[in-house]
């Protein structure tokens, strides 16, 4: 008899696999997206789309496991959840949460050594592909799914360290109603 997926336990973390296989899979995914788009910009969009889908599921999984079904409604708590709990679960370490300087709608999560960009080299024909688009998609998926409508995009910066590393920043731009709601909650 087939046990329903809803009856299965997933309170414990399922374990680990080799980074290598994950890297190869991700690489193939990028390659597939690359072969199925027409211009370089669309590759990022496609990766972003794939990431959003992952984000929807990540939220369910981690919320259930870590918070025993309590929903985050406050903005900073949610962002903290994403940059700490989610980031750690997915990438092995926490990201740095920063407030955007230019707008109260903007926040950033910075990662100095994002798992993805470490081993994904840019295909020869495209010099500005940013696989951080995938991470940004995940962030967007998580936040959208938690009723924090936003758009997330990724930017990489080459650090002049030795050896040179690439630091990825996910820029989150919330819809204005999110900030308004936060203000209302603060005042109540």
């Amino acid at each position: 008899m087939k046990t329903s997926i809803l009856d299965r336990q997933f309170s414990k973390s399922k374990g680990e696999v080799s980074l290598s296989l994950y890297a190869f899979l991700f690489s193939e995914m990028v390659q597939y997206c690359l072969n199925n788009v027409e211009q370089s910009q669309q590759l990022e969009d496609k990766l972003h789309e794939v990431g959003v889908r992952v984000g929807y599921r990540v939220l369910d999984l981690l919320c259930y496991r870590d918070k025993a079904n309590r929903r985050e409604v406050r903005l900073l708590s949610m962002l903290s959840f994403v940059s700490q709990t989610c980031w750690r679960a997915l990438f092995g370490h926490a990201g740095d949460l920063l407030k955007g300087q230019d707008s109260e709608l903007e926040y950033m999560i910075n990662d100095k050594s994002l798992l993805l960009t470490k081993f994904i080299s840019v295909p020869r024909d495209f010099s500005h592909i940013n696989c951080g688009a995938y991470a940004a998609g995940i962030v967007e998926g998580i936040l959208q799914s938690a009723e924090f409508p936003c758009e997330a995009s990724a930017h990489t910066v080459e650090e002049s360290t030795n050896p040179p590393t690439r630091s990825t920043t996910v820029l989150i731009r919330f819809a204005s109603e999110v900030v308004e709601r936060e203000k209302r909650l603060q005042n109540s």
């Binding site: 399922k14 680990e16 696999v17 980074l19 794939v50 990431g51 889908r53 599921r57 990540v58 999984l61």
Partner: peptide, 17 residues
């Protein structure tokens, strides 16, 4: 001896693919 990554991340990425 291998570097490791969360099995969930693999599963979610594969599912999304």
């Amino acid at each position: 001896k291998m570097d490791k990554v969360s099995a969930e991340l693999l599963a979610l990425t594969y599912g999304s693919l």
